[in-house]
Design a protein around this nucleic acid. Structure first.
Length: 178
DNA sequence: TAAGTGATCTCT
DNA sequence: GAGATCACTTAA
């Protein structure tokens, strides 16, 4: 089942947990469809989140974060890597989830490279139409399989926001059944 | 541990 | 326009 806009248009921390165990699906140029289970995400929640690109207001780059949930926010960093986020929450409340890992691919930069995801998806809906979407394939994730930690690479955000447990990841993959 | 890489943002 | 920074990765 393809996740629809109403799934995303809820609080970031709620959607973040529920995204674990869902499948990121991409239709490649050759028509082939690749689906991989999401295993690691990070939340960026609101304008007051000092680690978020949106903390200093709306710019050309982060505009997608201010839209209603259900679209992609893809940006380019370090001269090399595309970062894939899905926008969540309501319109004009900037929030997004960075997809950091899927099964077999650990790291947001590697993930986009492996799956061929680039900024061309920025601002587009997560749907079959655009060729990049997320599905619920019935995987049940027990709460005990989810761990949290501070987000990676956000020391600049100061002592409060850099330490929030906004990173969610799966452990004990073998305990998860379809 | 540090370099690589270029878009983006914040000053001049 | 210039300079600093950066939600990363890899090789050492």
């Amino acid at each position: 089942m393809v996740l629809r806009a109403d799934f995303y248009q809820r609080p970031a921390l709620v959607v973040a947990r529920e995204l674990l165990g869902k499948f990121l699906v991409v239709r490649k140029k050759n028509g082939r469809v690749v689906a991989k289970m999401i295993t690691e995400v990070e939340a960026y929640d609101g304008i007051r989140d000092k680690a978020s690109h949106a903390s200093r207001g709306k710019t050309a780059r982060n505009a997608a974060m201010f839209e209603a949930g259900g679209i992609w926010y893809v940006y380019f960093v370090y001269g090399m890597y595309e970062m894939l986020n899905v926008v969540v929450g309501r319109k004009d409340y900037p929030a997004a989830l960075l997809i950091r890992g899927v099964e077999g691919v650990h790291g947001p930069g590697k993930l986009t490279k492996t799956l061929g995801i680039t900024r061309r998806f920025n601002g587009l809906p997560a749907s079959r139409v655009t060729g990049l979407w997320i599905e619920d394939r019935g995987v049940r994730v027990p709460r005990s399989a989810i761990k949290t930690s501070p987000r990676i690479g956000v020391a600049y955000a100061g002592p409060v926001w850099s330490k929030k447990h906004y990173r969610f990841f799966l452990v004990r993959h073998d305990s998860i059944r379809t």
